[in-house]
Nucleic acid binder design. Structure first.
Length: 209
DNA sequence: AGCCAGGCCAAGC
DNA sequence: GCTTGGCATGGC
């Protein structure tokens, strides 16, 4: 059922290709910075911040560590929560650059202030090609409305392992499925859903129908 | 012109 | 343990 959902989303929306982006930065650095900047923030705003960083030649976590904090805040301002995010990014850069790359696992990332489960999994999956599924608010909402789960506030790791159990161990599937869920929820399964245009409405339990 | 975005943390019950 | 408030800009 869950894998079938992936296939339907995939054939409807096509390939998403989230990361890497245009390649100004190394993948790990680019994903980490993007993942932190997009916390509770639309990707459109993150893009503006990323453009500012590229223009200012901030192209790596090393650069993030070096740059003057006030100047940095100004560059990432469009992404919102810029005071907090500037601190988180600098602290993240410091933590990551102080250890060997092999030490960067989920537990390590979660120990860094400002890195929660979704951000950690995003960095692992898209930045390090680790087979770990990314759950977000959209995933919970969609799966709840579809009737796959009976509680929208399901614990992060429970939904994560439920999905992982039901899809093939394939990096591309992991990467695309999460991106497709986001795409679908931005288009149709919004807070106020547009059910009449949705190709899933026949088997969706959404109470709002 | 509100409402909302690809969360997370600290503080308060 | 679970809830709540704070963080901030820009698009629709």
């Amino acid at each position: 059922m869950i894998y079938n959902l992936y296939k339907q989303l995939s054939s409807t929306y096509g390939k998403q290709n989230w990361w890497p982006l245009s390649g100004y930065m190394e993948k790990f650095d680019e994903v980490s910075i993007g993942a932190i900047l997009t916390q509770n923030t639309s990707w459109k705003n993150v893009e503006k911040a990323l453009e500012n960083l590229v223009s200012a030649k901030i192209l790596s976590l090393e650069d993030v560590l070096e740059i003057d904090e006030e100047f940095f805040k100004n560059l990432i301002r469009p992404a919102g929560f810029y005071n907090q995010k500037a601190k988180r990014l600098k602290n993240f850069a410091k933590s990551v650059l102080s250890v060997k790359k092999e030490k960067i696992n989920r537990q390590f990332l979660l120990s860094i202030n400002g890195i929660g489960k979704e951000t950690a999994d995003t960095i692992l999956l898209y930045g390090l090609d680790k087979l770990t599924f990314v759950v977000d608010a959209y995933t919970k909402r969609l799966f709840y409305r579809l009737g796959v789960i009976d509680n929208e506030k399901i614990e992060y790791d429970k939904l994560k392992s439920l999905i992982e159990k039901n899809i093939p161990e394939d990096l591309e599937v992991y990467k695309e499925f999460h991106a497709l869920i986001v795409e679908h929820c931005k288009n149709l399964c919004r807070k106020k859903p547009i059910c009449d245009k949705c190709f899933l409405k026949d088997w969706c339990y959404n109470k709002q129908n």
